[in-house]
């Protein structure tokens, strides 16, 4: 074996707007480096890019499975985790409030990834249909809820967002 410890390096990233420097290990994924830096909301559900629990919003790339991205490729990147949904005063995002209201979180392990999928959807589609929400969640596995209350919560949150057509036009 070669001495891999020698190959560690560091990257500069902005996590939810805060500058951080992460020492990374050879071959480490973004998921692993984020978790090692204490960003435990980034969950490891499979380590193979299937479950969506490690979703982050990665700069221009948008919604990304952080377990598939080498940390070394993220120098200078902007990363948003679920903590980034809170406003500056620490208030919950409408998505989070509606998840609570609808009983859409059971064990919660998939929830950060699902909330980020939903957030990503609402960036482009302010008034998603049920099918569009389901499509947005197609890369996430939730083993507890059966998704129904999550879809309802996401649509309810969309209704509340200021740019939502429904909010602007009422029920018409």
């Amino acid at each position: 074996m070669d001495d891999e410890e020698e190959t560690t390096s560091s990257i500069h990233v902005r996590i939810n707007g805060e500058r951080e420097q992460h020492d990374i290990e050879h071959g480490e994924t973004l998921m692993a480096s984020l978790r090692r830096a204490g960003h435990y909301s980034v969950k490891n559900g499979c380590d193979e890019g299937v479950c969506g629990a490690c979703n982050v919003i990665l700069g221009e790339r948008g919604l990304t499975r952080s377990c598939l991205v080498p940390a070394a490729s993220c120098d200078g990147a902007d990363v948003m985790t679920v903590e980034g949904l809170l406003d500056d005063a620490g208030n919950l995002h409408p998505l989070q409030e509606e998840f609570l209201e609808h009983g859409a979180a059971q064990c919660g392990y998939c929830i950060p990834g699902i909330l980020l999928s939903a957030y990503d959807l609402l960036q482009d589609n302010v008034n998603p249909t049920e099918d569009e929400v389901a499509n947005a969640l197609s890369g996430n596995i939730c083993r507890c809820t059966g998704y129904v209350q999550q879809i309802e919560a996401i649509q309810a949150a969309a209704d509340r967002l200021p740019h939502s057509e429904t909010a602007a036009e009422g029920d018409a």
Binding site: Y40, V42, T81, Q96, L100, A105, G108, I111, L115
Partner: peptide, 14 residues
Amino acid sequence: KVDGWGLVTGNARY
């Protein structure tokens, strides 16, 4: 849920 805030903010500790 009494643990709901942690679940939706990513603060829940597994």
